[in-house]
């Protein structure tokens, strides 16, 4: 019995020491991680809605009908438009994307935040290559009637291209529904 107690105490002590060390490291890294994430989001938002200055998040109750695909809608404080974060399924799993919508309810730009598309094919949609940039640029100025035929779709990644086009149409509809 004594032995069991001793083992428990030793294990507990080691867990406590490790947790304490982790707590200390976490204190140090917490600030930088938060800054990194905020900067990243802000940069992604400004990239899709160039004339915006700062953003305010809209209450999720306002777009409850689109809750399954839309994570977040933020409105630009200077009235430049909206930025919507949406998650939808691509060819290989879900894609998370930021879409800028200008005040005329047209797409102002898209930026893929997270994806798991096939490297070399669907991945191009999110990459910084020339092809990826021209793919994303082809969305600018489109309204909710957008289909895969209106954009510079990627050869070999039809499903990814279709999914992105569908998501942009869905986002514009959601923003229009906000009124």
């Amino acid at each position: 019995m004594n032995k069991v107690i001793k083992l428990t105490v030793v294990l507990f002590l080691i867990c406590a020491i490790v947790s304490a060390v982790l707590g200390a490291v976490n204190e140090v890294t917490k600030g930088p991680i938060e800054t990194q994430q905020r900067e990243k989001t802000e940069k992604a938002y400004k990239a899709v809605l160039p004339y915006a200055d700062s953003f305010t998040e809209i209450d999720p109750a306002a777009y409850v009908a689109y809750k399954s695909t839309i994570n977040k809608i933020s409105v630009a404080d200077n009235g430049a438009g909206y930025v919507v974060e949406t998650t939808f399924s691509g060819a290989q799993g879900s894609i998370t994307m930021a879409v800028g919508i200008d005040s005329d309810m047209r797409c102002a730009g898209i930026s893929i935040i997270k994806h798991s598309e096939t490297s070399g094919l669907g991945e191009v949609a999110a990459s910084s290559s020339e092809r990826g940039v021209s793919f994303r640029k082809s969305f600018i100025g489109k309204d909710e009637t957008i289909t895969v035929h209106d954009i510079d779709a990627i050869t070999g990644a039809t499903i990814t291209s279709k999914a992105v086009a569908g998501a942009v149409a869905n986002v514009i509809n959601a923003v229009k529904a906000l009124g």
């Binding site: 294990l11 080691i14 490790v18 060390v21 982790l22 490291v25 890294t29």
Partner: peptide
């Protein structure tokens, strides 16, 4: 309980590296 202790030590170091990477090489 040596294996349990190894795992705790390893998990500790992995988390430290994970946090540092998130903070400085995101």
């Amino acid at each position: 309980i040596r294996l349990a202790i190894f795992v705790v030590v390893i998990a500790g170091f992995v988390t430290i590296v994970d946090l540092l990477l998130q903070a400085f090489i995101p």
